[in-house]
Amino acid sequence: MKKLLLTLVLLCVTGLLLGGLTLLYHLPLDTRDRSPQQPLPFSHLQHAGDLQIDCRFCHRHAETGPVAGVPDLDLCLSCHRHIATDKPTIQQLAGYWDRQEPVPWVRLHQLPDHVYFPHHLHLRAQVECSYCHGQVENMAQMQRIASLKMGWCLNCHRQNQASIDCWACHM
């Protein structure tokens, strides 16, 4: 009798634990904002869409290094010292420069520390920026469209016959 009870309890606990873990994986527990308010209302719609500036003009390191990089303030001002200087947001931008303070952009895409994602290798394999980042040329305010979960990565790796070795990303 006692043995049976014990086994039952143990089974219940295991079941609960497994159930809990499954729930944790599937529930939308990501508390990060998918389309956060930025300190300055920078519009990709205007820059990448209307003006058709190449992504790599600002995100300069995408082809050479693992991190694509955000443009330094000096680069923003290389245009905006002359263009649209009368707009309040550009004046705000100039204010950051005058105070010698970097703009604290809110980060949209972030992988955990145990994942190595090299931009340059993906560009070399001719993956479109939009595959992960969405049609940014249509976004006035940036949104994250991909889940960036491991299953999502693996899906694409399988489809394109890229390596699915653990060490490819977890090194």
């Binding site: 956060p36 390191h61 991190v67 330094d72 303030l73 000096d74 970097p102 952009w105």
Partner: peptide, 24 residues
């Protein structure tokens, strides 16, 4: 281990002279 909110992306004001590639 639970993450709270979005982190910040702080750019350089002016990048160093000899050029940097972030992550390298």
């Amino acid at each position: 281990g639970c993450r709270k909110g979005n982190e910040k992306l702080i750019p350089f004001l002016v990048p160093p002279d000899d050029g940097i590639t972030p992550g390298t």
